[in-house]
Design a protein around this nucleic acid. Structure first.
Length: 346
DNA sequence: ACGCATGATTTTAC
DNA sequence: GTAAAATCATGCGT
């Protein structure tokens, strides 16, 4: 049992040269030994350390306990922590403290903007409304897509939050686990609070990189959803009957020059509850399709001509010469039967 | 299921 | 930029 104090000497000699209390302690136990004797002593101790793994578990445990209870232990421990701290600091000096990740900030901003990470309902519907506005949809008839979009978004949102919570919980659990472990170990090896702190930092960074992946995939999902929603072609709705009639009325009553001005387009858009660009699309399609197959549209043309004539007649309270088909108010046609040379399209 | 109608987009020309 | 033409993708009646 006399080996235990000698082991302490070894620690002292290795870790604490120059410590006044320690040299005192050494003196206490080595008595009047000269330098050679002390060297011999240290050699023995080193030998013992080297062979410590050969010892039985009980023996090692007993020694550990003895070490823990030694009166010099706190002082030794602190100095060892200090040394370790300095070494660690010199190894990784400035390389730490990466700047706040730009990528992460972008993802966060986007999730916030899309209403995934923000407050419960408001953000989501705002984003949906923005998307709806961007898609060119107007009025109530796209509310179905609206709620569809919102439903899917809140689905994504829910998944995101559960996953995030799961990660956070796992992170906390792991952190406390590691902290307990380190605290436990700090009884037998030099672990300073700073080191524990650093370890916690490392764990958090690791988990936040996992979180970043989650954020990234959530962003992707939102982008896909959004692009689907915005791609109106996928959810094409025919204009309602009234809108089509208004457009056709204008088209056939301006058959000689079916190019509504910007103001006219705006007016039509307003009347039909569609956007100006939808009006433009409609006229673009109509012109080309009419031109391609005038015959097919003849009936339609006559019908609208008659209608305009009737309404004109009723305005002027004349019933007599109401309908003369194929010749609406402004000339014969857009290439149409009565071809006119100065038309814009040939 | 199929084919035509139709709104939107893309390509091309000016 | 606008418009024509071509093309796409969906809506809808059969």
């Amino acid at each position: 049992m006399d080996e235990q104090p000698r082991l302490m000497h070894a620690h002292a000699a290795v870790g604490m040269s120059g410590h006044p209390g320690l040299s005192q302690h050494i003196q206490d136990n080595t008595g009047a030994n000269d330098g050679d004797g002390r060297k011999q002593d240290i050699g023995d101790i080193l030998q013992q350390i080297m062979t410590i793994t050969d010892q039985s578990l009980d023996e090692a445990q007993a020694r550990k306990h003895a070490l823990n209870c030694h009166r010099m232990k706190p002082a030794l421990f602190n100095v060892l922590c200090e040394i370790k701290e300095k070494t660690v600091l010199s190894i990784r000096g400035a390389q730490e403290e990466e700047p706040p990740d730009a990528q992460l900030m972008r993802l966060d901003n986007m999730l916030l903007a899309e209403g995934v990470s923000g407050p419960e309902k408001g953000g989501g519907s705002a984003a949906a409304a923005a998307a709806a506005a961007a898609s060119g949809g107007v009025g109530a008839d796209n509310s179905a897509e609206h709620s569809d979009y919102r439903a899917k978004l809140s689905q994504i949102r829910q998944i995101y939050h559960t996953e995030l919570e799961k990660y956070e919980q796992a992170c906390n659990e792991f952190t406390t686990h590691v902290m307990n472990l380190l605290r436990e170990q700090s009884r037998t090896r030099p672990i300073s609070p700073k080191e524990i702190e650093r370890m916690v930092g490392i764990i958090h960074r690791k988990f936040s990189s996992i979180q970043m992946q989650l954020k990234q995939s959530t962003c992707e999902a939102v982008m896909i959803l959004r692009s689907r929603f915005l791609d109106a072609r996928r959810k094409r709705r025919n204009f309602n009957k009234q809108a089509t009639e208004i457009l056709n009325e204008y088209f056939y009553s301006h058959l000689s020059n079916p190019y509504p001005s910007e103001e006219a387009k705006e007016e039509l858009a307003k009347k039909c509850s569609i956007t100006v660009s939808q009006v433009s699309n409609w006229f673009g399609n109509k012109r080309i399709r009419y031109k391609k197959n005038i015959g097919k549209f003849q009936e339609e043309a006559n019908m609208y001509a008659a209608r305009t004539a009737v309404s004109a007649a009723s305005v002027s309270t004349h019933g007599s010469q109401a309908n003369s088909p194929s010749t609406p108010n402004s000339a014969g046609g857009y290439p149409s039967p009565c071809y006119q040379p100065d038309r814009r399209i040939q």
